[in-house]
Design a protein around this nucleic acid. Structure first.
Lengths: 244, 244
DNA sequence: ACAAAAGTGTTGACGATACACCCATGC
DNA sequence: GCATGGGTGTATCGTCAACACTTTTGT
């Protein structure tokens, strides 16, 4: 790979940090940032800044710095996209195919993160082209990022069935219908309304806010919030499975 | 950290490869090799070759080479311990605490592996002090290896409940009692014999070998093997959960 | 004959599924 | 008054848990 080729020069500029040592193995952290609103499940993506992938969508991420852990790097990436910290964040897998990055050997650790779109304004600090893309509209991506996204989505689906992490994606006040729609959307399934409500009732982890929707052209639904404290106690006691 | 100190010299010698560039972040792959026999669940460990951890137990692993994937590195480590390849191997997590390795910044990716102790002779190719250690006798370990082991064991337990990966640990011919003991040992639970047998019967993934134990001082048990082909078909059809 | 483990059935409780009608609100 | 979505109950089925006695073999 000649360093005099103009495309390579561009790459050298944009990703200079990882080119300091051509023989080394480099490490990056990529984030699959899932967001949810009434339109469905979306992922925060940027347009790739590499000429090989011009126009292609890419995950947000960064090269790992020497004085930070993988999680800290992911948190920095989150902060660079939106002003919020304290969002749900979980490591998924390391991807290490030899040729996955065109300019050298880069191994990436994937994290996924969950947030409520309506409550987190995107304020990109790195002049990237960030935008929310509906999960089922994402086709080709830069690098092996589609593979990473697919793996993270599968992990999210698994996790959502076993633990109530969906409450990181839903607004803090929600109706049972919204909750059901969330599960139907994320898991791509249909649920029976009455059975779903009975299930949630028996789990006893919602707080009845004694409030109703307003401004809706029909019977206003009751609003609930998630009882984190109660849930924490439950998982400590036994082999608890949320099991939606 | 002075390089003239004799202990440091020893470390430099033994781990010379990862000291070539003191400023870089280095990558290793560590393997939690689980083995099982009638005595229970064990892990293949070595005595640490680092003076800081003299006498402490350590996972086996290696520095990642530039021309190999993480999985290939793990497979190489497995081959260096025992002549077998084609063993169950799965990535678990990357560990990246800043001070986890005394001689520099080393991030490690943990894999766990499953094998039948009786069918895999240990033939160490690197003159380490390898031995099988019962899982409940492992206390202190070198580096953060205890933390890594604990995480891998938790992952194994989770996985064993959902998928029949236990058949990688059991002998290829086994009795229902052996199978039940396996689940009881690995999951640290007690199971009802009749309910367990009914469960396995209903799953219909065992092959009745029409053979019995011999040389036992009691009614000889029937022997079974696992029907991999049938299981593969099952998981493709629906949302299958083994659910022991 | 005895010790040791193999093998076998029934019941009751609970949770999952399937399904249809009335109610409150905004327009 | 009508369109829209909210809210509720019951019957059936399958699955899980609890439980004790008889059989076969080697010594």
């Amino acid at each position: 790979m000649s360093i005099t080729h103009p495309e390579i020069k561009e790459k050298r500029y944009r990703t200079s940090r990882i080119l300091e040592d051509n023989d080394a193995i480099h490490l990056s952290v990529d984030c699959v940032i899932f967001g949810y609103d009434d339109d469905g499940l979306k992922v925060l993506l940027m347009e790739s800044d590499m000429s090989e992938f011009r126009g292609k969508l890419s995950l947000v991420g960064d090269i790992l710095q020497k004085n930070e852990t993988l999680r800290q790097s992911a948190e920095k990436t989150l902060l660079s996209c939106s002003n919020l910290d304290n969002v749900y964040l979980e490591q998924v897998e390391a991807f290490s195919k030899i040729k996955r990055h065109p300019i050298g050997r880069v191994i990436t650790i994937a994290y996924y993160s969950l947030l409520k779109i309506s409550e987190h304004e995107i304020t990109d600090k790195k002049q990237r082209m960030l935008r929310w893309v509906a999960i089922d509209e994402i086709e080709e991506m830069a690098f092996d990022h589609k593979e990473i996204l697919d793996k993270c989505y599968a992990t999210l689906q698994q996790k959502v069935r076993d633990y109530p992490i969906g409450f990181n994606l839903l607004p803090s006040k929600f109706s049972l219908k919204q909750l059901q729609e969330f599960y139907e959307t994320v898991l791509c399934i249909k649920l029976d309304r009455r059975n779903f409500r009975r299930k949630l009732n028996s789990l006893d982890i919602l707080i009845d806010l004694n409030k109703n929707q307003d401004d809706v052209a029909h019977l206003p639904a009751k609003l609930y919030s998630f009882n984190y404290a109660k849930y924490e106690k439950m998982i400590k006691k036994e082999s608890f499975r949320f099991d939606i």
